[in-house]
Design a protein around this nucleic acid. Structure first.
Length: 486
RNA sequence: GGCGACGUGGCCAAGUGGUUAAGGCGGGGGUCUGCAAAACCCCUAUCGGCGGUUCGAAUCCGCCCGUCGCCUCCA
């Protein structure tokens, strides 16, 4: 199994600890989760599920950066305490991610609950000469690390040259970054050896990954936008603190979501939230959309793309329809093998998805030939599950009224066509207090009688009417079945 | 300005030196069906441009054109 690491710029053979130490950068909860978050966490969810599928044990840690300028600002705007804002948004985060069938990490450390560890680390860095105090602030001395820039492939000289920096002249080097920031009046703060303050942005991930996973991680994941400065700084301070390198064996960075011409981001305001996306598309459709392109490539959000994946998801679901136990089983070992080969190659989910569709075709073909499908169906479900597919189509409840109306209209139409009036009245009575499902079944029953009498115009009108209400009919040898249209 | 990524059929998207260039969606034709639906079968690309390396390139090198990301908060 090979994984591409940003640090080496190459695919490398995967040889992790047991259990695999996997740290994924979490969100800063100051607003709703958007599609970019969905992409990142779907990707790393697939990574984790695949590792577990391959019998690795995985210890998965993901943080919440629950204190920072944006959070403080947002809390002020909304007039609520920081803690209240953050707790609510974290609850929403879990709701959103659950709705995408994303497995929960084993630990979700929060910055505000890790202060002693963070302060210890900052103090250690000061003691070892890697950081210095400036007023109530502590800065990391980037020049103390000769390999600073190794992840993002930058050199300090190049960066300080053209960068847009508000230069704090007191800092020893413009790129020195804050480990600890002195408290501003009215903002949340914590006691430290340097007075009241709060942690800088990067230090928490170093402190928390060290605490929960140790000083040598296997996988560290996040979006490509975190490579610099966040992960670069994490490497610098962690490796300086522990004296242990490399901090991470496999740096995995997912490509960013684009919306139209530009990156989707909070600051640009061109967001599609997870909730909005989820209201329109099934979890499977969203996951297929994301996983049909390689995780290291940018992905352009598009309604058309999601819609086409919704149809694809339906195709997979239909392939899983139960089938009577048939004769000789169809051969599917090859698909399983190709799925594994694809995923072993740096999580090539687009190829893995392709294998799923090919397996679905194989199943449908076998079904037509009356072959045994049990093993094949099991494989499709299992391999799809590795990509986090549920094969469920959860939709809002149908409203009964339109179906009652359609039933009434149909009965009225039937009133002028003799042989059915009696039966129709009977049915109408039965339908009086029925649910949408019962209405649909009544309509199907009426249509069945009409078809038996070769009254196709009326029969087709029922089908069309149901179609307009989002219900599609399928006449099979076993009778007529209905399902929610995609 | 510095660093990096990308440009494959109508749309999306794998492939990254050598048999027929995956897969999805869409489109066309057929089978099944009263008609549909679903499903199956068949068809629908020579890989941004130019030049080079090679017996052989979408796949390596150079130049050009175009798109995007990072360098500042960000998954």
């Amino acid at each position: 199994m090979k994984i591409y690491s940003t640090l080496s710029g190459r695919k490398e053979e995967f040889s992790p600890h047991d259990p695999v130490r996997m740290y994924v950068c979490g969100v800063t909860p100051y607003d709703d989760s958007h599609f970019g978050h969905a992409l990142s966490y779907i990707v790393f969810d697939a990574v984790r599920r695949y590792l577990e599928f391959r019998d690795y044990r995985v210890r998965h840690v993901q943080n919440f950066t629950d204190i920072d300028d944006k959070i403080i600002g947002r809390a002020k705007v909304r007039g609520v305490p920081v803690k209240e804002l953050v707790d609510g948004l974290i609850a929403d985060y879990f709701k959103d991610m659950d709705s995408l069938n994303i497995l929960r990490a084993h630990v979700y450390p929060r910055v505000t609950e890790e202060m002693p560890q963070i302060i210890d680390m900052v103090r250690g860095l000061v003691d070892k000469g890697y950081a210095y105090q400036l007023g109530g602030d502590i800065y990391f001395r980037v020049r103390s690390r000769p390999d600073y820039g190794k992840l993002s492939r930058r050199k300090l000289e190049e960066m300080s040259a053209g960068a847009r920096l508000e230069v704090d002249l007191a800092k020893e080097h413009p790129m020195d970054f804050a480990l600890w920031k002195a408290a501003k009046p009215g903002e949340p703060s914590w006691e430290s050896p340097w007075g009241l303050g709060r942690p800088g942005w990067h230090i928490e991930c170093s402190a928390m990954s060290l605490r929960y996973l140790g000083d040598a991680l296997d996988i560290h994941g996040g979006g490509q936008d975190l490579i610099f400065p966040h992960h670069e700084n994490e490497i610098a301070q962690s490796e300086a603190f522990t004296g242990q390198a490399p901090l991470v064996r496999y740096w995995m960075h997912n490509g960013l979501v684009q919306l139209g011409e530009a990156k989707m981001s909070k600051s640009l305001g061109n967001l599609v939230t997870v909730r909005e996306a989820r209201a329109r598309y099934s979890s499977d459709a969203i996951r297929l959309f994301v996983l049909s392109s390689h995780y290291r490539r940018p992905l352009t959000y598009s309604e058309e793309g999601l819609q086409s994946m919704e149809r694809g998801a339906e195709r997979l679901r239909l392939a899983l329809r139960p089938s009577p136990a048939g004769g000789a089983a169809i051969e599917v070992g090859e698909h399983r093998q190709r799925f594994i080969e694809a995923m072993d190659d740096d999580f090539n989910t687009p190829q893995a998805v392709a294998v799923l569709f090919e397996l679905a075709r194989e199943i449908n073909r076998g079904r037509e030939e009356g072959l045994g499908l049990t093993a094949a169906l099991g494989d499709l479900r299992e391999l799809g599950g590795v990509l986090g597919l549920t094969f469920e189509k959860v939709k809002g409840a149908l409203q009964v009224a339109p179906f009652r109306e359609l039933l009434d209209e149909t009965l009225k139409a039937l009133a002028v066509s003799e042989p059915f009036v009696g039966e129709a009245a009977e049915v109408a009575l039965m339908a009086k207090n029925s649910s949408p499902d019962e209405c649909i079944l009544e309509l199907i029953e009426l249509r069945k009688r009409l078809r038996a009498a070769r009254q196709w115009a009326l029969a087709d009108r029922i089908r069309a009417g149901l179609g307009e209400l989002g219900v599609s009919l399928e006449d099979t040898p076993q009778g007529t079945v209905w399902r929610r249209a995609t």
